[in-house]
Design a binder for these strands. Structure first.
Lengths: 185, 185
DNA sequence: CGCCAGATGTTGACAACGCCCACATTCCCT
DNA sequence: AGGGAATGTGGGCGTTGTCAACATCTGGCG
């Protein structure tokens, strides 16, 4: 851990507090949901005082935004990896499956990203990362359209909403991943 | 307000605290989101001490659950009203439109109901009301199926997920109601 | 090398919150 | 009329987010 840090444990400066706080917040998020993500607990897990986090995040919300941004990056990477492994014609489906898998495996993170707790207007970096992730989705959708499948305009929105809705239902455990994936065929 | 109350303002007993607390919580929810819903502030708005709410709700979560349950009841009523006004063949679409309208007009309530903040397992009454609302939806879907449109099984789930996804996108202001409704046609 | 500005971390404090306790007041049923 | 149950009050504890003042370290400049 803290591979970039040159300093040890007993030092005054932590060396990589920002990363450590995000990692701690992710752990708290996974184990106890959004409410369990606390600046003071994250600081405790990172081994610093309760006020050290303010040198890296202006507020609790900013920490949550950083975790959400990390989530978008993970989702983006997962989707790209999944798309790279399949026939170009199946890319859109692969994107959808990756989306559903993310919702199932990172329920709390998914909710943080799409649950409306964070207002993108208050967190520019989060907004930018989210835009990037959606941009890739739009690109694949359009590529799919030009490849002759005719998914475009209203149909593209329909596809997005379908996957998004399935992902929410999966995250809420109202259906399971298998049922959701069956809807993509 | 407090139409059922027989007692006035200066009395020791409030007369309808439970309703008042739910109303106050709804107002707080609408104006400041879930985080703004506070037992103490709800008590303040109801004109009682900070501990009175505990005679009606065992915890803050229980108050939130009551507000969510009220949301499900409102949604249920809205959907029924909308369905009653249209040709039976269009009932499913009317349900979908009512769903979208609710998501747009009661964003915060929608998020409380579907955002995963509340675990239905911890709030039996909420679970029951939610089941009732979904039951009506399922009934309409099946009626639609038997009327010859053939929406059944996987297609029914697809329809549900589509509307649910559109509603979330509307609640998150990523699309507007008009775009969403266009997807129902 | 010495030193200082800025970055980073610490200590202490305050108000608000959820929740618990003991106590007060009122309602309703017998 | 009386007494138990329901309801509301007041005080208190521990936790949290945030602010202010102070301490320590780091890197660059003379």
């Amino acid at each position: 851990m803290w591979a970039l840090s040159t300093s040890g444990e007993g030092t005054y400066h932590h060396g990589n507090l920002r990363r450590s706080l995000i990692a701690a917040a992710q752990a708290l998020l996974r184990s106890g949901g959004i409410e369990a993500v606390t600046l003071r607990e994250a600081a405790r897990q990172a081994g610093v005082s309760h006020n050290a986090p303010y040198r890296h995040f202006p507020s609790r919300e900013a920490l949550l935004a950083a975790v959400a941004a990390e989530g978008f990056r993970t989702l983006h990477r997962t989707q790209s990896d999944a798309a790279a492994e399949v026939d170009p014609a199946d890319r859109l489906k692969a994107f959808g499956r990756a989306y559903l898998r993310f919702a199932a495996e990172e329920r709390a993170t998914f909710r943080l990203m799409f649950g409306g707790t964070l207002d993108p207007a208050d967190h520019p970096e989060l907004a930018a990362v989210a835009r990037g992730t959606f941009g890739a989705l739009v690109a694949v959708t359009q590529e799919d359209a030009t490849s002759g499948k005719g998914i475009v305009g209203r149909d593209a929105l329909r596809a997005w909403a379908l996957v998004h809705g399935l992902a929410h239902l999966v995250a809420d455990r109202q259906i399971d991943t298998a049922q959701a994936e069956a809807c993509l065929m």
